[in-house]
Structure formats: structure tokens, C-alpha cells
Design a protein around this nucleic acid. Structure first.
Length: 698
RNA sequence: GCGGACGUGGCGAAACAGGUAGACGCAAGGGACUUAAAAUCCCUCGGCUGCAAGGCUGUGCGGGUUCGACCCCCGCCGUCCGCACCA
């Protein structure tokens, strides 16, 4: 009886597969009657090496791809590299390596590792987003979006990451910190390139319903992120025009979901960075002090929870839209967000806890206008707890006696009649700022001309390529420091002009790569429309849930934009018909007595105690966490493939836990998987030669 | 605070239109075969109890519905994830 020797068997079959071109997708016209199946795993950032955490993702996709192939489908199962990004620049700074060299070396290493794993990829379609033959098409797409009005430029307050020295999209700010650096995010005013994702806000939300093969969790997260709410915009006329450098302001607009409570209004509150607040702060020290304190508050969850509601009277007054004789004061309040709605609210203390807190603190009137079910209008009172539920409207003149629902409709109708407001739909989703002040990204193909303004680079001049000779010896954007790169001439008037030195957010690169795979070698177009129409949408996408509102939302936007540009015709506008979010591979963490993180391979078990291999010193065994380089709890793919073979790795990460749940990598588990694979081998090996086996391998 | 998921042996987990809880696997223990080990094969493996047949108990906790509850209802406790002053 022979034993399973992965060192012989696995290379043999890999070579056989490669030699036969077994996993190449057929072009649409060659497919015959085969239905298509597009199976895709989220492509990796080439950070250095593949660990068993990656391998679970690829193995799951591989199972689906191989199964579809066995069922007679024409399968597209490609792999590529999300190759632009900050770690390459950090490597350049730390080790003096060019980001491109570092990235390409990592790709070469990781490609070899993935090949060892034996995943059935069509390597002829491999792409890397950092190569001009990829990003030239991205630049063309971006120019097209600009023509369509989906890319625009705007001066805006942005999330600034002071460690990475760049701007972050809202989606990239987690608990007030940069998603990558973990640094507390600051706000800055900058000119930004922005993608108009809000153009599709409604469709992106509505279409979630049709994504039946997506996890509910991800759909819910996207729905919350898009955050639609129905309500009214209401204009409150100032008793006297407010003078600013840009001219007088006559009224203040607020957004509300509860126009039925307008008769309960007792103040207007503006955000601390509302233009009017800022203007008042110039001449009033108390207001300036209030704004400074509000800005310091920070955005961490603890700060928000503990922050006391505070405000300051700006000394302005507005007239009630339904009664010009009724005046209420204008305040600024620390809980009003500048980025949502109009950055201004009307305070209706009886129906909103925050408004009530403010009113009680400063002695502003509290008028209940909603009677809860079963309440008595003669005795119902609000003390320190607001009632924000539905009920019967009262103390509200023409709205008296109406249900909350009916009163909202009636109030909006009246607002529209008298021109003081209108019903609107408000989204939480904001446009996607894509400018990054970095070198290692896709150049944004525009030129700044003193005479002509911002001018697109003509198509025939694409790609705008990155310069090779850059230095990272000072902070800021190397493209900006480069002696010659940004100096050019205006395509329109021929005058001296400068190139845009911002590069695109790397999430742009990954927002359309699945379409490039449909026609990866096309030199002239991002992809041929017929081929994209054949392959898209991706039938089964597999990846981590951490991209629920980043990559997965951006890609949905991009597919819609490409569709509206006429580049493809997927009717739904959806890139991924099926999505599976797999559980992570987790591993114990180890620290030395001095607190250094240790690689698992640098430790060993001495009896029941884990010790450092080199010194024998005891090791503190920490939490079981997601494999990550920073915690050093990674198990390198090469090591386990060498010791156990790819089949054992694949079996272990698939079998030890349900696919949507985390799996803990342990040496005992690997050993068990190894024995299992041995037993299968032995069972097949025991069959008489030539006998039809329980499994017939095609 | 809001929303969601989850809680079953030493471990990963099955079983859910309410019908023998712990399938399958890992680990562990015992035995066979070996000079010995590995591999392989056999047995045991929730807890308590019993020589045994068996008995009692057991799916986070407390109630309830039912002939019957891991499953349905009410109330707690805990873990994880997402969002978070969104007007």
C-alpha cells in the first residue's frame, strides 16, 4: 500500500493542468452551448506573502469554480492584484525600495504561493492595477464619468489622516480613526475630486432587494449606510438679513422628518461649523469659544456618549413659517452635524431627547404637540423624557386632531403652498471623495491651466504614467515634489500648465476589475462590451465582510456608471449576483515576556507550556485573532504546503468550521486533516487496478 | 443607545413544520498488530449513578405553551458584528 506523498503528487498534477490549459475560460463565441459561470474571489493586496487566511478565501472560490466546470459550465475564474496602495510607499520610505519594485516582487512571490495551492485559475487573465495597461483604461473611464457629470471637483471639508498624510472617504473612517493608520482623523478644507455616488443613491438602495443571493447582513449594512429618510426642508425667514462676505442671508433651511411637530418648535440650532455660526464667531468671543470646544470634542464613541448637550444663542431670530408673528431664537448646538441635511435643525424639545436636553439646560420653552396613544391632553406633560413616537397632534392649530402620519402630509402640503418648504428625501450617503495625496496610485488625468481652468487630458495622451524617479525623503506627495513631472502644457491653449498631482483612491482600482477580467488583454478598451455582457454579473463572489460598505458599494456604483456610459448592459446594474462572505482564519497570538509579538513558528510547546524556540523563555499566549501581519499570528502558506501539502491546507480551512464562520488554525487540526487525506488516498489505493473507483476523476 | 447574529461535549459542530440531542470529524484514553515507533484496525468518550441490564440528569439562566421544546412565547444573562448625536 502506497502513501500519499504530496511532494510528488501535487507538482505532477499542477503541471498536467497547466499543460492542458485546463482552467482557461472559453471566449463567448467558443463556449458552444455551455452556460457561463463567473466565479471570483476578492483579489488581494500584494502585501508580501500569502498566509493560510488568504487560502481559505481562494479555496472556497475554487470549490465553486471546479464544481461549475464539472457541471459543464464555461467558467471564468481569474486572479489579479490590487496593487496600488500605501504600504508600498511605506516600504519605500523604510527600506529605500521603489514602490513598484516592492509591489512587483511581492506579486511574483505571492503568485508562486497561490500556484502551490493548486487553485484552478485562468492565469492568462492576470491583472495588476498598478500597471499602465490597467490604469490607462481607468483613466479613460474617469474621463468618461467626468463628461457624464459623475466626477466633479469641489472644495470640501475632508477627513484628513495625519499619519498617512492623505484624505480619507467617509467609509474609510472607523470610529473617527483612519481605517489603515488608526490615527484620529482631522478635518481640513481641500479641493477634491469627487465621484457622484449619490446620483444612484435611490437605485443603490432599492436594488438591494433584488440581491437575493447576498447575505442579509451586508444588505442591511448598505441600506443603513445609504440611509434614506423622508421628510421636509423648511425655510425659516430671518427677522433681519444676516450679512456675510458673500452677501446677505435671508433664511435658514432645516431638514426634518417630523414636520408635524413644527408647532412645537422653540429654537433653531445650527452646527458649530455652519457658515452663520462661523461668521458670528468672528465677532463674539463666547461663540468662538463654544465652537472651539465643540471641535475638540472629537468623534470617538466615548466622547459622543458622554458629551453633554451644549449650545449658544447666536442673537438672531427667525419667523415661524406658519405664523410670521411668531419669532424663535437661533442657536448653535454641539450635537448638530454639519454633514447631514442642511447642518441646521429646528428644535422641537417635546419630541426629541437632544432638543429637550438643550431646552431644559437653557430654559427654552417645551410645548408638547404629540399626544401618545391613550394620553390625556389636559394632563400630558413632558418633563425630562421626550416622546418621539406617533400619536395625535395637538397644540398645533390646523394640524390638531390629525394622526402623526396625516399631520406630516398636511404640514408638507401647507409648506409647499406658502413656499416655505417642500417634501424631500434625504440621504446619509455622501459623494465619494477620491483624491489622494499619494504617489503610488492612478494619476488623475487632468491639467490645471491658468487660462482654461481644469482641462481633461486628451484620450490619445493616455495613459498619464507615474514617473519612476521619485523620492520619499520629505513629507507630502512625491508627485508634487518631482522636478519636472507635473509641468506640461495646456491641451486647449498650449500655455504652460500643471498636471493634477492627486492620485485616485485605490478603491477606484477595485471598483471595476471584475469587468476587466472579462477581456483582460484588450489594449484599446477597458473591456469589450459584448464580452462584459456575456460574463457579468459575477455569479459567485467570495470575500471578507469587511468590505460590506466600501468595495461592495463602490463596485455597485461603478457598474451603474459604466452601464450609463454605454459600456455594458447588465440590466440590473449589479456587479455581483451572488455574494458569500466567508469567515476568517484565526490563530492564537504569542508575545514574549518583553511584549514583542512572536510568529507561531518561533515558538514551541515544551510539555504544556509554550516557549520561545530560540531562548526557551516562556511565551504569553494571547487571544485568538484574525491572522494579521501586525500581530504576527500568521502561518505562512509555504510552510504548511511543504509539511502537509496543499490538499491538507485546503481541507483543513474548509472542513473544520462552517464556511461563514471563523476557523481556528491549530497544528492539531492540520495534523487531523493530514490523516484524513491519507485515509482517502489509502481507500482509493486499495481498489484493484483498473476498477471503477468511488470517484471518477475526469 | 439602535440594528443584527449567536449561546449545544475537551474542540469544530449536527439535529430546527415541535418528535430517540450530540450525526460526522478532531483531540483524548484503552486494546490489537509491531523488537519499537508511525500508519492501520477495534473499543470507550456530556454529567451523575450502577457489577450489569439500566436509572436520573443535561442544549446560557428563570418562567410559560404543549402529550412532547435545542426548536415556539415572555423575561433575564453573556459573546460577537455593524451603525451611532443622521434631526
Amino acid at each position: 500500500m502506497s502513501r500519499y506523498n504530496h511532494r510528488d503528487v501535487e507538482p505532477k498534477w499542477r503541471a498536467a493542468w497547466d499543460g492542458a490549459g485546463l482552467f482557461r475560460a472559453r471566449e463567448p463565441q467558443e463556449a458552444g452551448g455551455r452556460p457561463k459561470a463567473y466565479v471570483l474571489e476578492m483579489f488581494p493586496y500584494p502585501s508580501g506573502r500569502i498566509h493560510v487566511g488568504h487560502s481559505r478565501n481562494y479555496t472556497m472560490g475554487d470549490v465553486v469554480a471546479r464544481y461549475r466546470r464539472a457541471c459543464g459550465f464555461n467558467v471564468l475564474h481569474p486572479m489579479g492584484w490590487d496593487a496600488f496602495g500605501l504600504p508600498a510607499e511605506n516600504a519605500a520610505i523604510e527600506r529605500g525600495i521603489h514602490p513598484g519594485d516592492w509591489t512587483r516582487a511581492n506579486i511574483a512571490t505571492m503568485r508562486d504561493q497561490i500556484r502551490l495551492l493548486g487553485v484552478a485559475y485562468d492565469w492568462t487573465r492576470e491583472i495588476a492595477t498598478c500597471e499602465p495597461d490597467y490604469y490607462r483604461h481607468q483613466q479613460a473611464l474617469i474621463l468618461k464619468f467626468h463628461e457624464m457629470g459623475l466626477l466633479y471637483r469641489r472644495k470640501s471639508t475632508v477627513n484628513w489622516d495625519p499619519v498617512d498624510n492623505t484624505v480619507l472617504a467617509n467609509e474609510q473612517v472607523i470610529d473617527g480613526r483612519g481605517w489603515r493608520s488608526g490615527a484620529l482623523v482631522e478635518t481640513r478644507e481641500l479641493d477634491q475630486w469627487v465621484l457622484k455616488i449619490t446620483h444612484y443613491a435611490d437605485d443603490l438602495l432599492e436594488a438591494l432587494r433584488g440581491l437575493e443571493r447576498w447575505p442579509d447582513k451586508v444588505r442591511t449594512m448598505q441600506a443603513n449606510w445609504i440611509g434614506r429618510s423622508e421628510g421636509a426642508r423648511v425655510r425659516w425667514r430671518l427677522t433681519a438679513p444676516f450679512q456675510t462676505a458673500d452677501g446677505p442671508i435671508d433664511d435658514i433651511e432645516v431638514f426634518t422628518t417630523r414636520p408635524d411637530t413644527l408647532f412645537g418648535a422653540s429654537f433653531i440650532a445650527l452646527s458649530p461649523d455652519h457658515p452663520i455660526t462661523r461668521e458670528v464667531a468672528r465677532t463674539r468671543e463666547d461663540v468662538a469659544g463654544f465652537c472651539a470646544r465643540a471641535a475638540q470634542l472629537g468623534t470617538s464613541q466615548e466622547a459622543i456618549e458622554k458629551a453633554e448637550k451644549a449650545g449658544v444663542d447666536l442673537g438672531l431670530r427667525v419667523r415661524h413659517p406658519f405664523d410670521p408673528d411668531w419669532e424663535i431664537p437661533v442657536w448653535s448646538a454641539n450635537f448638530v452635524l454639519s454633514g447631514y441635511g442642511t447642518g441646521a435643525i429646528f428644535g422641537s424639545p417635546a419630541g426629541d431627547q437632544r432638543d429637550l436636553d438643550l431646552a431644559r439646560k437653557y430654559g427654552l420653552p417645551v410645548t408638547p404637540v404629540v399626544l401618545p396613544p391613550g394620553g390625556d391632553p389636559a394632563t400630558h406633560a413632558i418633563d425630562l423624557e421626550a416622546y418621539d413616537g406617533p400619536g395625535v397632534t395637538y397644540n398645533s392649530r390646523f394640524l390638531d386632531g390629525l394622526s402623526t402620519e396625516a399631520a406630516i402630509v398636511a404640514a408638507i402640503r401647507r409648506l409647499e403652498e406658502i413656499g416655505a418648504g417642500e417634501g424631500v428625501t434625504q440621504f446619509r450617503l455622501r459623494d465619494w471623495g477620491v483624491s489622494r495625496q499619494r504617489y503610488w496610485g492612478c494619476p488623475i488625468p487632468f491639467i490645471h491651466c491658468v487660462a482654461c481652468g481644469v482641462v481633461p487630458v486628451p484620450r490619445e495622451h493616455l495613459p498619464v504614467t507615474l514617473p519612476q524617479d521619485v523620492t520619499f525623503d520629505r513629507p507630502g506627495n512625491p508627485l508634487d515634489h518631482h522636478p519636472t513631472w507635473k509641468h506640461t502644457t495646456c491641451p486647449t491653449c498650449g500655455c504652460a500648465a500643471t498636471r493634477e498631482t492627486d492620485t485616485l483612491d485605490t478603491f477606484v482600482d477595485s471598483s471595476w476589475y471584475f469587468a476587466r477580467f472579462c477581456d483582460a488583454a484588450n489594449p484599446d478598451l477597458p473591456f469589450d462590451t459584448a464580452k462584459a455582457d456575456y460574463w457579468l454579473p459575477v455569479d459567485q463572489y467570495v470575500g471578507g465582510v469587511e468590505h460590506a460598505v466600501l468595495h461592495l458599494l463602490y463596485s455597485r456604483f461603478f457598474t451603474r456608471a459604466m452601464r450609463d456610459a454605454g459600456l455594458l448592459h447588465t440590466p440590473s446594474g449589479e456587479p455581483f449576483a451572488g455574494l458569500f462572505t466567508q469567515g476568517m482564519v484565526v490563530h492564537e497570538t504569542y508575545r514574549s515576556s518583553e511584549g514583542r509579538w512572536l510568529l507561531p513558528e518561533d515558538t514551541e510547546l515544551a510539555g504544556d507550556v509554550r516557549v520561545e524556540r530560540a531562548t526557551g523563555a516562556p511565551v504569553a499566549v494571547g487571544a485568538v485573532e484574525k491572522m494579521s501581519k501586525s500581530r504576527k499570528n500568521v502561518v505562512d502558506l509555504d510552510d504548511v504546503v511543504r509539511d502537509y501539502g496543499a490538499d491538507v491546507v485546503r481541507w483543513m480551512v474548509l472542513s473544520d468550521s462552517p464556511p461563514e464562520r471563523d476557523v481556528e488554525w491549530t497544528s492539531g487540526g492540520a495534523l487531523g486533516a493530514w490523516r484524513f487525506v491519507q485515509r482517502i488516498w489509502a481507500a482509493v489505493d486499495a481498489l484493484p487496478a483498473g476498477a471503477p473507483g468511488p470517484l471518477t476523476v475526469a
